[in-house]
Amino acid sequence: MILFIGAALPLSWLGIAWQTGMLGVVPEERLLHELGRWGLYLLLATLALGPAFRLTGWPGFPAVRRAMGLWAFTYLLLHVLVWVVMIQGGSWSFMVAEVLALRHLQTGLIAWVMLVPLVLTSVNRARERLGRVRWQWLHRLAYVSAAGGILHYWMVSRVIETEVIVLGLLFTALVLFRLVERWGFSSPEK
């Protein structure tokens, strides 16, 4: 419930700000950027749930992982839709040409598409059919997707943005935590 409110809050704020004209004179651009930003925050937050559980042992963290991941995807889906409908005006020829020409769009698109199989296999039945090990391997794609998302953010920045550096460091810390946990603590030498 707290997660639902927390994750829905930025979206509600965006909706209200958009409708009341608080997003400036070109609101679709702010919408695009804010949806992308919050999607990336939520994706990183989802990845942080594992380490948070390891450190605290609180079962609340893993319990909300699926919901939080789905929220992240929802924001990023809206991010893509705003780009398609409001920025490109729904013109396929413009969109295809833009994606073919621009690396940051390719990066963003690949990072986003990677999340689709994760959403499709998020239901319990898919998890059972894949088996736990294979399912876990597949869902490591979330790390690759988050890295792609941060790279995409870095590529669209016209100057060096502090936020990109912070997100990059956070992501690196999460990956290091996982690696240390996997090979560091469990290695026989220890």
Binding site: S91, A97, E98, L102
Partner: peptide, 15 residues
């Protein structure tokens, strides 16, 4: 960084 073949006229939708 940006595709220069098209542009968005601010106030219009699409490109």
């Amino acid at each position: 960084r940006w595709r220069q073949a098209t542009e968005r006229r601010i106030g219009e939708s699409g490109r």
